[in-house]
Design a protein around this nucleic acid. Sequence first.
DNA 1: CAGTGTGAAAGTCTTCACAGCT
DNA 2: AGCTGTGAAGACTTTCACACTG
Lengths: 214, 214
Amino acid sequence: MDQQTSGETSADNTVPDIVVARLPIYLRALATMQAGGKQYTSSQEMADLLGISSAQIRKDLSHFGEFGKQGTGYSISELHGRLRHILNLEHDWNLIVIGAGHIGSAVASYSGFEHRGFRVAGIFDNDPRKVGLSLGQFQVIDIRDLAFFVKQNQVKLAMITVPAPYAQGVADQCVAAGIHGILNYAPVNLSVPDHVNVQNIDPVLHLQHMTYYL
Amino acid sequence: MDQQTSGETSADNTVPDIVVARLPIYLRALATMQAGGKQYTSSQEMADLLGISSAQIRKDLSHFGEFGKQGTGYSISELHGRLRHILNLEHDWNLIVIGAGHIGSAVASYSGFEHRGFRVAGIFDNDPRKVGLSLGQFQVIDIRDLAFFVKQNQVKLAMITVPAPYAQGVADQCVAAGIHGILNYAPVNLSVPDHVNVQNIDPVLHLQHMTYYL
DNA sequence: CAGTGTGAAAGTCTTCACAGCT
DNA sequence: AGCTGTGAAGACTTTCACACTG
């Protein structure tokens, strides 16, 4: 996500968006190391693991402070904590999924959000035949209740997993409801106000990128 | 995340990977326009639609030839065809999915591959309880048959949807079987030889990127 | 005119290489 | 010795702006 994808929202900060985009990658590597019982690492070790140069890792981190010790490297748990803080991940964020089709169902039952800062709070659809159905631990909610639910649960992030022709309309509803970040699985470009961040996931884009080299 | 180009694509061989990554985005927009019955477009119109500057679109396309007409813009169907050619999408590619869990199942039944150059040819798992089960139109295949299947069906692309701890092992098997491109859904960094292209999809990375701005 | 294709300029990002700390 | 943090250099990417064309 490469892909492709633009972030760039609120120009309030001096840290390049491309640097911010790498922090979660560092965080993920640190979490894995920590789970393995490791205590210290170095920019070089992370570089080997991630295929990013050590200089870049050091430079990226230097935007936020000095977290390492010369000669020793970085304390994994400390750096992990710092990144969690920088990325606002010290508390979980509620998440909603809109579209109870194949992708939406898979996403809603995806265990990968746990321990990484997110919690699926609800899943929505506009199809009366789906509303009320149980999907894993969730009951599909009518999309008409979206705005109420978002306010009630202080939801800031939504994942859009509806068919392409409906995605823009759903995005508009999200924005109106107060959503600030959209992870869009529909293969279309969404247009949203500046204060809303959109990230896109379209596997076909990645595949088509690879076929160029085949 | 970078590779040498194959074959003959009329223009020079040194197209930046970042440019290649945008071509599928252009292709997607053109397909949408074409489906809407439109005949011509301009770099400015595409720019508005995609949030990319018109100069960049023209510059990107200029790496591959001159496809537009001054005063008129681009013929949508011609440009669409050119991009399909450049991206090697004139014929469909067989695709395999490894991991018959939630994500794998969703991916295997995703209708979005059709008409965009790909066809899921098989889905694999190592769990004997899953092997043989029907998943949509597919029967789950034993991963031991991976290499045979890949050769038999000339598969070049694989999607890895197994749990993180298994992903590297599966990637190694893919490489050994002759896979050239991997779309990795597991939240780990895969290490593969230079001739294999890896693209990653981890929704949590996108979400964590957005929380920075919340 | 409207809109492309493109050198040149501007801007951004990455790498180098080393002083300085532990 | 080992490794960070960082200015400066280098590489890469985007934008500008305009000659040119249908």
